[in-house]
Structure formats: structure tokens, C-alpha cells
Amino acid sequence: MVNEALFWIVAIITVTGSLSLLFARKGAHIAMSIVTVMCGLAAAYVGLGAPFLGVVQIVVYTGAVMMLFLFVLMLVGVDQRESLKETIKGQRWIALAGAGGIALLLISVIGRVSLYSPDDFTDGNPEEIALVLFSDYVLVIEVLAALLITAAVGALILTHVPRLVPKHSQVEIAEARILAGADPVNKPMPGVYARHNALDVPALDPEGKPIEDSVSRVLEIRHQTQDGAEFRHQLEDTDNPDHAAQPADAPPRDSHDRNPRQGEGESR
């Protein structure tokens, strides 16, 4: 006899988990919910006397397939939020009516049949399954093996990006840069002030002007750079104390990630 408590636990876990497919917004959340659904189904298999399938369910679905899903989610951007607003007119109602209709029809059919259920059912242990698989279904197993290999090769081909141009050597890259008019020498390192090695301050050229290129472009885009005016003033302070107060009043461009300036101000 089938354990009733187990059924209800499995039912609640799987249905709530699968409902996330309809309502959750983040792909990662959905994937994790489906993992729990798969685990619940594995438990159901075990409860239905199929321990081998339960283990295979855990290994194949939870361990391999859903992890693959998660992996692809990471690849295409895990924080892509999806709007649940429907864009196709009437799609939502068709979908709900179709899904509800199929559920109703199936349940009504299932509810009307009563099948004999033997109580002396022995669990399908792996040995019995192996006997059936490799005797009656051996040809199917072979065909499935071919299918799996084909799928693997197909996936490789689908995701393969052919190289359209020959790979450039380092010498060629350097030559191309020089031909394009780039600076032949390395860019100067940022953060020239001895007392501050932060990467967000441009280097100075011999005339004392900042070299904008020396700061990483990423910081530039994030507005996390600073022009180093206060450091300069601190240096100039030693020569000309009259200008000392000015830089402290200047508002910071991006204060929340620039603690060093604060520290300098306090120390002065």
C-alpha cells in the first residue's frame, strides 16, 4: 500500500514548487524551486516502489539537468528579471483556459476509472530492472546510447563559434597598435602620490597636469574616479599654506566609496 502521508508531503512540495514557474520572477529562484520539485518526485518514485528510478531522478535531474539549467542561467545573466506582464493579446487567458481544461479533462477521466492494485507488489530493485533493460529492451538501450552521443555532438556544434580570422600573434597586435597611432610606451600607472596608492587618481605629467588615460576606463564609467586635487593641495600646502583650507570644502564627487579622502581630512 502506498504511504498516504508521503503522498501529501510530495504533493504539497511539488505543486508549490512548480507554481513558482508561473509566479517567480528570477530564473535562479525558479530553478531552485524545480530542484525541490525533482527531489519530491524522487521521493514519490521511492514511495511508489521504484527506488532505482528515485535515485536516477536525483542524479539525472537534480544533479545534472537542473545544474545545467542553472549554469546556462548564469551564462546568460542571472539577474535578468522578467516582467510578468503579458504582451500577446489574449495569451494569458488562452493559456490558463488550456491548462485548466487539460487538467480538468485528465482528472475527470482518472477519477472515473478504478484499476486493480495488487498489494503484493515488490519494489522494483535495480537487479530486476537491469534484467528487463538488458534483455527485452537492449536494442532501445543501444539506440538511446546513440541518441545521447548525437545530442552531445549536436550541442558542441551548436555552441561552437568558428574562428573567422586567423589568430593574431603578439607581434602583430603590437604592430597594429603602432600603425593605428597608439602610444608606443605603456600608459603611466595611476596614483602617483606617495601617500595614496589608490587607482582612482590620475597620474601627473611633468608639468603637473593630470593624465586622464592613466585611470582605468571602468572606474571612469562608474564615476569612481577623482582628480586628486586635494592631494595636490596637501602637497602645495607645504609651500603655500594660504591655500590650505580650500580643498577640504570642495564637495566629493562620489563620496560613498572614497574613504581615503575622509581619512586625510581628519588627519589634517
Binding site: I94, A95, G98, A99, G101, I102, L105, L106
Partner: peptide, 9 residues
Amino acid sequence: LVGLVIVVA
């Protein structure tokens, strides 16, 4: 899906 529902129906 609608077709499936109709066939099953």
C-alpha cells in the same frame, strides 16, 4: 495546447 485540449475532449 488548445488543439490537444480539443482532441482529448
